[in-house]
Amino acid sequence: MANQVEDYLTKQGISFTAHELPVEREDGTAVLTEEPVDHDKIFKTLVMKGNKTGVVIAVVPLDARLDYKKAAKATGNRKIGLPPMDFVLEHTGYEHGANTPIGIRLNHPDYLIVFDESIHNYEQVIISSGEIGRAVELASSDLIELLHPQIESLLK
């Protein structure tokens, strides 16, 4: 059954493949139980809070480590960090592990979305579609065209 993100992509005529990811909940956090075949194409969505801009959405490769100083500078903040989970749910409508840049853009068009520049190295990427264990794979160029994110160097 399609969800809001998949319905939106369909309405926009954007080609995508829906994926079920092997996840399990541990202490309120969704954890992959096995490495998916296309693990290297998965990008995670991080909800952050900047001291000047408020909510900032960063999209980075799953195994990458965000550089907070680079993220702060790229978004016009002096300090930026990961807020508590209740802040994330309240400001995005998604629980931890289900945040999706597409759904967040649809529901909060004013939030700043920043992709790491490594997105240009991928023809296809896999991102959450707004539910734990559910993701969509689409062309990175389509995702960029759809969301018009800032693209910056965000990694350590």
Rank of each mutant, 00 (worst) to 15 (best):
N3H: 10
Q4P: 14
D7N: 14
Y8P: 04
L9A: 05
I14M: 01
I14E: 00
I14H: 01
S15W: 06
A18W: 09
V23G: 11
V23K: 12
V23Y: 10
E24V: 15
R25W: 15
G28H: 09
G28L: 07
T29S: 10
A30Q: 06
V31C: 07
E35P: 03
E35C: 07
P36I: 01
V37G: 08
D38I: 07
H39C: 10
D40E: 12
D40I: 10
F43V: 03
F43Y: 06
L46F: 01
M48G: 03
M48Q: 02
K49T: 09
G50L: 03
N51G: 00
K52A: 07
G54V: 05
G54P: 00
V55C: 05
V55N: 01
V56R: 04
V56G: 05
V56P: 00
I57Y: 04
A58F: 05
V59C: 08
V60N: 08
V60W: 07
P61D: 09
D63L: 12
D63G: 12
D63S: 14
R65M: 13
R65C: 13
R65A: 13
L66T: 11
L66K: 09
K69R: 09
K70R: 06
A72E: 05
G76T: 05
R78M: 07
K79A: 06
I80T: 02
L82K: 10
P83D: 04
P84M: 00
M85H: 09
D86Q: 06
D86N: 08
F87M: 01
Y94R: 13
E95L: 14
H96Y: 11
A98S: 08
A98R: 04
N99Y: 03
I102V: 05
I102G: 00
I102N: 01
I102Q: 00
I102L: 00
G103F: 05
I104Y: 02
I104T: 10
H108D: 10
P109R: 02
P109T: 08
D110Q: 14
L112Y: 11
D116R: 10
D116K: 10
D116C: 12
E117L: 11
I119A: 04
I119R: 04
I119L: 01
H120S: 15
Y122A: 09
Q124T: 15
I126P: 07
I126L: 10
I127G: 00
S129W: 01
G130D: 04
I132H: 08
R134Y: 08
A135I: 09
V136P: 03
E137H: 11
E137G: 11
A139L: 12
S141T: 13
L143P: 02
L143H: 04
I144F: 13
E145N: 14
E145Y: 13
E145W: 15
P149S: 05
I151K: 06
I151S: 06
S153P: 12
L154V: 14
L154G: 08
L155E: 15
L155W: 11
K156I: 13
K156Q: 14
